[in-house]
Simulated assay, not measured.
Amino acid sequence: MKVSVPATSANMGPGFDTLGIALQIKNQVVIKPSKFHSVSLKGEGSNNPALKDNNMFISIFNDFYHNLSTKRRNFRFEFYNEIPMSRGLGSSSAVIVSAISSAYAIEGVELSKKKLLNLALAYENHPDNITPAVMGGFNVATVQDNEVNFIKKDMPKNLRAIVVIPNRPISTNMSRKTLPYKYSKDDAVFNLSHASLLTAAFMSENWEMLRIASLDKFHQKYRMKQMPELFEVQKTSLKAGSLMSTLSGSGSTFFSIAYAEDSKKIERELRNRFPHFKIFTTDFDNYGVRVEK
């Protein structure tokens, strides 16, 4: 069987811990019966041998598999990773979602996406990454009484994502420590109004509103100060024609949305300006996690 989960961009602009979107970059795991347990890893993270021995996927998979099954079978896990690690593209959420999905699929136990989402919440308590990983598309999500409540919007074919991945990470834990302990009422109202406008713009497909709606006063500038080049990435992307350009997750990746016909020009401008960063254009994913037997 094969399980694939898309990358995600969360914390979108003013949507701190609330707004997230799925990208057509995937992590896949192929699981086969085996006489003994084995793990292979290709793509992102393959140069880190410790990931084979201290594998979060295997740990979560075993948690669920041992609860669901009375059998003790061995498997070969073959990982094919496209999602960069520790770059704000939801690699941890992809691991969590794929591990739980795999355990249920191996045992042939039905698992709805809604239930999967709430099971994943035990490992990732911010819904802005796990929700698009499970559901695909653009999502507004919140947690109430240990349950994720969300509304999803499929992304149209005429938009593309331009992804800028710097040559070094920003620690999520360190990044959160840079954020203020308290916010002023003015800043809170600013973010509330802009997050509301950004959500409305996505739902109504008013793409010209994204640039204004994606402004933020809660987290981006504090995190971007750890890598000042990111201010220039944002400025360059918007000047070249992006509809919006925001920090992805806690960074260091920067995420922009553009019309398909403008995306290659924007990518080219960013490549010329930041030749030492990895930059590419990709589609959005509207399906989320997939299980194929």
Results as ranks from 00 to 15, higher is better:
6 P>N: 02
16 F>D: 06
18 T>D: 05
19 L>K: 03
20 G>P: 07
20 G>R: 03
31 I>M: 05
47 N>K: 13
53 D>Q: 15
53 D>F: 11
59 S>L: 04
62 N>Q: 15
63 D>G: 08
68 L>H: 10
70 T>Q: 15
72 R>E: 14
76 R>Y: 09
83 I>S: 00
87 R>P: 03
99 A>G: 04
101 S>D: 00
102 S>F: 02
116 L>R: 10
120 A>E: 03
125 N>Q: 11
129 N>T: 08
130 I>S: 01
133 A>E: 01
140 V>S: 08
140 V>W: 10
153 K>A: 08
158 N>K: 06
158 N>I: 01
161 A>P: 11
165 I>T: 04
168 R>L: 09
169 P>Y: 09
172 T>Y: 13
173 N>K: 15
175 S>Y: 07
177 K>C: 00
181 Y>P: 04
187 D>V: 00
191 N>R: 15
202 F>W: 07
203 M>D: 08
209 M>A: 14
211 R>V: 03
212 I>A: 09
219 H>C: 04
223 R>T: 04
240 A>L: 01
240 A>P: 02
248 S>L: 14
253 T>L: 03
262 D>M: 07
263 S>N: 02
266 I>V: 13
271 R>C: 12
276 H>S: 14
277 F>W: 02
279 I>F: 04
280 F>D: 02
286 N>R: 09
288 G>M: 11
290 R>S: 13
